[in-house]
């Protein structure tokens, strides 16, 4: 039985698979970016199987319908309703707690917050703002926080860095840490690896954690986050993967595969 609890033996009892997007399906870059070889076919095969499939991303540079349309143009069989991203989750939290955000996010993400009152802000929301992470803009967010009696900072994800076609870039996590240090506070993370976020995906599939597998390129946030929820986590050697990930001090993936195509084949082969 031991073989069925590890990777890829565990595929036998799986009922759902969750895929990260950037670095697993495609690499971002100029224009729409490029699909990772074999991934379009892999998504198709997983969808045609009896497994449930969802997509879980910390993408915060564009509104959900915009980046889903981009993936469709790249050739992926993917629907908005299958995709979980931090901004809609943050909007739900803001409304529930009647918070009015100061937003430090990429322009493309702003439409997601159209329905939220942003006057006289009493919290700050940061996403991957890329070139909008200027000293000036960070300082504005800092001043809002330091001026609040009870400063609240939401971070859409806490990734350290990600890969663009021209190299690795700082992700929102670096700027979250900067504001945490400046204001001596702890941010609330919305998105991966927050257990609430993974749980919302499991709820949508109606599955228990042990019935689902997460595949991602980010060892800590995808793999580690999923494992802490009780799911299996498999890392692909694409996207931001670095060989040192396989010797990480705190997170060990249940399996490591070359790419999504190899992961999909391993899963489907073990189910026949």
């Amino acid at each position: 039985m031991a073989a069925d609890t590890g990777w890829p033996g565990c595929a036998k009892s799986l009922k759902g698979v969750i895929l990260d997007l950037c670095g697993v399906l495609y690499d971002s870059g100029e224009g729409d970016g490029t699909a990772i070889p074999g991934s379009i076919e892999a998504v198709k095969k997983l969808k045609a199987s009896d497994l449930q499939l969802r997509f879980c991303t910390n993408e915060t540079q564009a509104a959900r319908d915009t980046f889903v349309a981009k993936l469709q143009r790249l050739g992926f069989d993917i629907l908005v309703s299958e995709v979980f991203s931090p901004a809609p989750a943050a909007v739900a939290v803001l409304k529930e707690r009647a918070l009015r955000p100061h937003l430090l996010v990429y322009d493309g993400l702003l439409p997601e917050f159209d329905s939220v009152d942003q006057t006289n802000p009493n919290c700050v929301v940061i996403g991957d703002a890329a070139e909008k992470f200027s000293y000036q803009n960070l300082n504005e967010a800092f001043r809002v926080l330091i001026g609040l009696e009870k400063p609240v900072l939401f971070s859409l994800g806490q990734g350290r860095y990600y890969k663009e076609t021209d190299g690795l870039n700082l992700d929102v996590g670096a700027y979250m840490k900067a504001l945490e240090y400046a204001c001596d506070l702890k941010a609330e993370v919305v998105g991966k690896p927050s257990p609430t976020f993974f749980q919302s995906v499991l709820n949508d599939m109606g599955l228990q954690p042990h019935e689902a597998l997460m595949i991602g390129d980010d060892l800590v946030n995808d793999v580690g986050g999923a494992q802490r929820c009780g799911m299996k986590g498999v890392q692909v050697r694409t996207g931001k993967y670095r060989p040192s990930d396989e010797r990480h001090s705190t997170v060990t993936a249940d399996g490591t595969v070359d790419d999504l195509a190899q992961a999909a084949d391993a899963i489907l082969n073990h189910r026949h």
């Binding site: 960070l138 800092f142 860095y161 240090y181 400046a182």
Partner: peptide
Amino acid sequence: ARYYKRKDGLALGPGPFVTGLEYAAD
């Protein structure tokens, strides 16, 4: 330093940027 006082109000010091880079590059 976390922040310092400027004529127009408080402003971020070098500490936050150092901390951000430390986190990103582990």
